[in-house]
């Protein structure tokens, strides 16, 4: 009972906030709605017993990706009139794509109703639940069965990093605010200060 209620609550909120992401005029509002959508998606994950995925969804998407999104969007100066003009121009195309996707969804639901949508293995028999916690089972699958793909995904991230650095990093000589910590620490009063006893009425020569 409470699960059903929670499911419909989370699902309705995901959809509503997803709609608001595109409906909101202000891009910052869009991002905030997106965060709400992530949140409710995490709620759905908890409901199906995938609490590890739910936590990761929050940590990665809400905690890092969306913050950076917000970071960029906040600094944008967007011309809304122009944005809406583009919207009108592309409206028919958007509608067409939306119709196709809607048809897809209906097919999906239809198949689900017919009882064909059984996830897991090819024969349609769902994968047996492992006798271990969520985290442990994901770890086992990730590092045993899919270790090849896991490592390859790591290389993809490396490529992304190398790419970002190659395209944006410019080596500047003598950058402002450069600081050599060890030199700073090595300095002692003897080499940094001088004691002078100036005579009255005369300045100090350094």
């Amino acid at each position: 009972m409470i699960q059903t209620l929670a499911f419909y609550l989370f699902a309705a909120l995901v959809i509503a906030s997803a709609v608001m992401v595109i409906m909101a005029r202000n891009p910052v509002h869009s991002v905030l709605w997106l965060i709400l959508a992530f949140f409710n998606a995490a709620g759905l994950m908890v409901l199906v017993g995938a609490e590890f995925i739910a936590a990761l969804l929050l940590i990665v998407y809400v905690g890092a990706v969306a913050v950076l999104f917000l970071f960029v969007v906040m600094m944008l100066d967007i011309d809304f009139a122009e944005l809406r003009a583009g919207f009108v121009k592309n409206f028919p195309l958007g509608i067409a794509i939306a119709l196709v996707l809607a048809a897809e969804l209906i097919f999906g639901i239809g198949a689900y109703q017919a009882g064909q949508l059984e996830l897991g293995v090819a024969s349609g028999v769902a994968a047996p639940a492992l006798d271990a916690s969520n985290t442990a089972s994901i770890g086992a699958v990730l590092y045993r069965d899919y270790v090849f793909l896991f490592e390859a995904a790591g290389i993809i991230l490396l490529v992304a990093m190398v790419g970002a650095i190659v395209l944006t990093h410019r080596r500047t000589e003598n950058a402002r605010g450069q600081q050599d910590i060890s030199r700073q620490v090595r300095r002692n009063p003897d080499e940094a200060t001088v004691m002078k006893q100036p005579e009255v009425g005369r300045g100090v020569d350094l």
Binding site: F107, G110, A111, Q116, L117, V121, A122, G124
Partner: peptide
């Protein structure tokens, strides 16, 4: 979603069993 498998052999087997519009 329609075959329950990401493996090529599994997909092929599932498609041979039934191939829906989806």
């Amino acid at each position: 979603g329609f075959t329950g498998s990401t493996n090529y052999a599994g997909i092929r087997a599932a498609f041979e069993a039934s191939f829906s519009t989806g």
